[in-house]
Design a protein around this nucleic acid. Sequence first.
RNA 1: CGGGGAGUGGCGCAGCCCGGUAGCGCAUUCGCUUUGGGAGCGAAGGGUCGCAGGUUCAAAUCCUGUCUCCCCGACCA
Length: 498
Amino acid sequence: MQLKGFKKGTMAQKITKREEDYSQWYLDVIKEAKLAEHSPVRGCMVIRPTGMALWENMQKGLDQMFKDTGHENAYFPLFIPKSFMSKEAQHVEGFAKECAVITHSRLKAVDGGVEVDPESQLEEELIVRPTSETIIWDTYRNWIQSYRDLPILVNQWANVVRWEMRTRLFLRTMEFLWQEGHTAHATKEEAVDETLQMLDVYRSFAEDFMAMPVITGVKTESERFAGAEDTYCIEALMQDGKALQAGTSHFLGQNFAKAFDVKFQDKDGDHKLVWATSWGVSTRLIGGLIMTHSDDQGLVIPPKLAPTQVVIVPIYRSDEERATVIEYGDSIYNELKELGIRVKLDDRDNYKPGFKFAEHEARGIPLRIAIGPRDVQNENVELARRDTLSKSIESREGIGELAKKLLETIQNDLFETAKKRRDEMTSFVDDYDQFKKILDEKGGFIYAHWDGTAETEERIKNETKATIRCIPLDKGEEGTCMVTGKPSKQRVLFARAY
RNA sequence: CGGGGAGUGGCGCAGCCCGGUAGCGCAUUCGCUUUGGGAGCGAAGGGUCGCAGGUUCAAAUCCUGUCUCCCCGACCA
């Protein structure tokens, strides 16, 4: 039995509507879902328990995929000696402007307060890691002597700091959580394969767990990671038509092996430089998740990642009714729990059902089961989907299996909906004026021909704010550059980006 | 880092122009009535007005500095 959808707009509006102010909507969703908040430290956030539970679920999924592809976790220091940073020229250039530097080791008390003790100045300053290539490659030098020591397939879960000018919760913060994989190989082919393998891990994680469709491709020289030969990426499209780089996988060539003198003796007895990769995704994915699925009622997230997948809301008047309904709810709770569903029974007595409905919607719980005396009587439940905001009456019998099935349906539907939206906001353009027009009026992804030069790329960026997000891996047809008319090997993906 | 806006009980705001010792809504606590889409009434608790200086008999209010957040720009894997 189908019921009518929820009445919208009748509730007190705590969340700014998307079309009114997208940035404010994004902040409101995070706040109402209790994912994170601003901290007293500029550019840094407090990740609240719900936000952390979401990240932990993402970690679990990714970590399993890393283990399944032969990787192990390790942990390297937060601090990097300053001299390490300068060993790889491109790398230091890329990160120099956003490094936090530790110069002193202690404070001293001064009339009621504290100040930095000038006598504690460090002989060599320490850098708070913006990424760990340098300290890891310095370490790998000692781990690698023979081809038998290769490959090294290591990942670490860590925090990093990049001193950003302008920050946004999850999307760009000065400190963020991430994973960084660092691998060492005997041959170029093996390293390239690893780079592409991990890119595909990211793609499938984005699609299968986050229900977020992505385009895979390689970055142009100007967007490449400092110190990499090639940077591959997954690019997602947000609801407001802006692109988000959601993950990167770098083929580092022998740049860090050279810089840190990491060689191995091969079967033929020759000493050779090691080939490297690194790859990472961060809490930025949470920002992408929010902006892919959520609506004006608040957070919408896929069941696979939802900290709570099903919430049961009891409805009652008297104490007797309460006892009956809660008992009914408990049995449903146990049934779902048995099936491995992350379920909660919201038995708080100080909130009315309507309040709870709104709250659980704002917090993005995929499925809600409401039960009242009528349902106990008829052996029914009311089932509500967060993604479609639709409700139906279902039989108590078999509710566990139904919920489980429905969670899978929601997971798939979210992906299909997001993919459909992404495709609708993707254009193919051959004319530069048309390109500008679409960018301003519609936004989204634009596939266009480009002559492959940094000059043209720069010009387009300056004139339109759009950047080449990537050169897609599934190559299309040849053509001519929309700006210069010179030959183009394939269309590249343009968008304004976060 | 440049331009604009803002910081006042937990949250959202008024008061500031024109100085006179802080108020409203929501939330919280207690009580009663309620409970199928954000409950009602009654009572109570909670704020050195971001922080630091200065002017003044007197500063949330005027002046200077500083920190943080939001928007736009520059910058940025």
